[in-house]
Design a protein around this nucleic acid. Structure first.
Lengths: 185, 185
DNA sequence: TCAGTAAAATAACAAGTGTTATAAACCTGA
DNA sequence: TCAGGTTTATAACACTTGTTATTTTACTGA
């Protein structure tokens, strides 16, 4: 019937995502994706109506990527929220552009931070339950405080204003949790 | 000798700065500045060698603007760092684009966060001295923790993930200071 | 008054952008 | 084999960007 498809949606999304990881979506253009994928710009606009649709796809991919990243990140902290926070800060350091896309940009189609963190596995809910089980009277409030702190460290990483080692960060988060939790008693 | 200058450096910088305030420097183009200033693009490049130089000028102006903003911001907090933090967070809410330019972008010519905060008046140093006078054993460390927290809240306002009132924010910062300070004892 | 000179306006260039028209390539059912 | 239809490549369009010739304007010292 017709010519066989050689440039798949997969290939285009893979390429655009890889470029976003390396240089941010602001530097992803139709021609650059095409060059990287070894084709013309035509297949891109066959698969995605326009660049906005490609952005949506890259965004969803980044969200899934973060979920995987958290899933694979080693558990080193004992206090609630600390493991999630460690992964978050490491993600900011190692995946600057993805972090920006997901957590530090003000796009139209962006999900809320809570939605992204909680993901499909209910990461946040689990941690809040942990805090509740540990006897915290207001675990939601504690989460808010911890997350403001953690987000602050992550954002400072982006601009180079925070540069503590993993070990130091772990201690910082554990102690901050302790400080916030103590204030609740 | 020559024609009188009608488009001054002042006018161009004022215009570019006002536009940056409203829509961010990413949306400031030579033609748009010219249109706003009621002239052609030529005077811009007479005064500034290129757009990068204009960026530098706008950046310095923004830094000075933040200093003024802090100077005029009402003192409502008692604990060290709280007033500075309140102004910082309000600045993020009210001057989104300037905040981004100064504190949440990763440009080449950007100053460090500490430099910007401390300014010409030694704002940070004063606050650290206050904490020391209040008997804090490690005021530098306390500042770091407080500032991570404050920066987190400010960055969340940018993305709409933080939306507490001024009164609530004040209470949050005061209590956080207490929590961090208590952990130092 | 008028020549010289600096500033400003006009217009253009070269890149780079998203997107689309057109033409070539290629696969498959008949 | 070959006609129809889909995918792809090639070009092009329309637009925006920074930046720079070129020309016009207007001021001032003589």
């Amino acid at each position: 019937m017709a010519r066989k498809e050689s440039i798949t949606m997969q290939l285009i999304l893979d390429t655009a995502f890889a470029m976003t990881r390396q240089e941010g979506f602001a530097n992803v253009t139709a021609r650059k994706v095409a060059a990287q994928a070894g084709c013309s710009t035509q297949p891109i606009f066959r698969v995605y109506k326009n660049m906005d649709e490609l952005w949506d796809a890259v965004y969803d991919r980044a969200a899934a990527f973060f979920q995987d990243y958290y899933g694979l990140y080693p558990r080193m902290g004992k206090a609630p929220f600390v493991n999630l926070g460690m992964a978050y800060i490491a993600f900011a350091r190692e995946e600057k552009h993805l972090f920006e896309l997901l957590f530090a940009s003000d796009q139209e189609n962006r999900k809320s931070m809570y939605e992204l963190l909680n993901g499909a596995n209910g990461n946040v809910v689990s941690e809040i339950n942990l805090a509740k089980a540990a006897g915290c009277p207001d675990p939601g409030d504690l989460f808010m405080k911890m997350w403001i702190f953690i987000h602050g460290a992550a954002c400072m990483t982006l601009t180079g204003d925070y540069d503590l080692s993993e070990v130091q960060t772990l201690a910082l988060l554990e102690r901050s949790y302790e400080a916030f939790a103590a204030a609740h008693r």
